[in-house]
Simulated assay, not measured.
Amino acid sequence: MNSAPHLLTEDRAEYERILDDALRNAHDRPDLAAVGQRLNAEQLRTMALNAAALITTAAAAEYEHYVKVREELRTPRPAASVRNSVLAPAVGEADESGAGFAAVIAVLAPVLAGTAAVIFLLVGYILKMLSPTPSFADTLLTAGWFFGAVTAAGILVAAAGLLITALRNGATQVPAEEAAGEPDEVARAKEAWRHAVLERGLLPFLRAALADPSADPTSADPPRHVSHLPKIGYSGPDYSSPSEGSTAGQRPTFTSPDFTSPDFGGPEHQPE
């Protein structure tokens, strides 16, 4: 019995992409120039999908390596490294608590100072309209203009802080393409598997299907000319009838037991 490494569910889409690329570029290969004459691309695609387990057997070693590398990347890190990665942000948060408090003050100061400036200026100018003018009207106006200046200064400081933070985060940001891409080792293993599936599995299968006039597009069996790919399945035991001259198949014979009558003699032979 030969067993094929069945593709994982997440890799079947990649196998179909390899197949579609091979059929799309079939006319660039002289050995696949017959696509569309007896069998079209859709029929060949159906045949290759039905025989996916057989075709991918040709790249079993590369696929095993690819899956192993990918799983190692997905495996959680040891407890020590996880603990360090958890403790590091906590220490960073303790160091940045002062910076966070300063950021809150930088945001609230302009709001509070602006509110106070509006109140003092509004009350001061209302008192200035009265006759006689109260003596503390000028004091309220002075306080209002002071808080107005504090508001303007706070807005400038907050804007400068936002600009510095944006520049700092922009310098340490990882590009989206790099973050979304696969690691080099996984990418190399994947490319090696793709190449092996194409060169040792799909292309020989397609060539054999085009050369075999009896190939059935709806059948899962490989074409007759694909002799170097292992066939998946079981072979039944060899049952043969016994030969005529052998005695193993003959019916046994039985003989009846030999019963004889007891020997009766004269009176002198009395039973004991």
Rank of each mutant, 00 (worst) to 15 (best):
N2E: 11
S3R: 09
A4L: 03
L7E: 04
A13P: 03
Y15V: 05
Y15N: 04
R17A: 13
I18F: 07
L19Q: 03
D21M: 04
A22F: 01
L23M: 06
L23W: 04
R24V: 04
N25P: 01
P30R: 07
L32Q: 01
L32K: 02
L32R: 01
A34I: 04
G36K: 00
G36L: 08
L39R: 06
L39H: 12
E42T: 10
Q43F: 00
Q43A: 08
L44M: 08
R45L: 01
R45E: 03
R45V: 05
R45S: 03
T46W: 03
L49N: 11
N50E: 04
N50V: 00
A51N: 05
A52D: 03
A52M: 15
A52V: 15
A53L: 02
A53C: 09
I55N: 01
I55M: 02
T57F: 01
A58Y: 04
A59N: 04
A60W: 06
E62F: 04
E62S: 09
E62L: 02
E62M: 00
Y63H: 05
H65V: 03
Y66E: 06
Y66S: 01
Y66C: 07
Y66W: 15
K68D: 13
V69I: 15
V69P: 00
R70C: 02
R70L: 12
R70Y: 07
E71F: 04
E72W: 06
L73S: 08
P76D: 10
R77T: 00
R77Q: 09
P78H: 09
P78E: 07
A79Y: 12
A79Q: 15
A80R: 10
S81D: 15
V82F: 01
V82H: 07
R83F: 13
N84C: 03
N84Q: 10
N84I: 07
S85P: 00
S85M: 11
A90R: 13
V91W: 09
V91A: 10
G92S: 13
E93P: 00
E93Q: 12
D95H: 08
E96H: 12
S97E: 11
G98A: 07
A99N: 11
A99R: 15
V104T: 12
V104M: 12
I105Q: 11
A106N: 14
A106L: 09
L108M: 15
L108N: 12
A109L: 14
P110Q: 06
V111N: 02
V111Q: 06
V111F: 11
A116E: 09
A116L: 11
V118H: 02
V118Y: 02
I119Y: 03
F120T: 01
L121G: 02
L122C: 04
V123R: 05
G124I: 06
G124H: 01
L127Y: 11
K128E: 08
K128P: 02
K128L: 13
K128A: 14
M129E: 10
M129Q: 12
L130N: 11
S131D: 14
S131K: 15
P132H: 10
P132Q: 15
P134C: 08
P134E: 10
F136C: 10
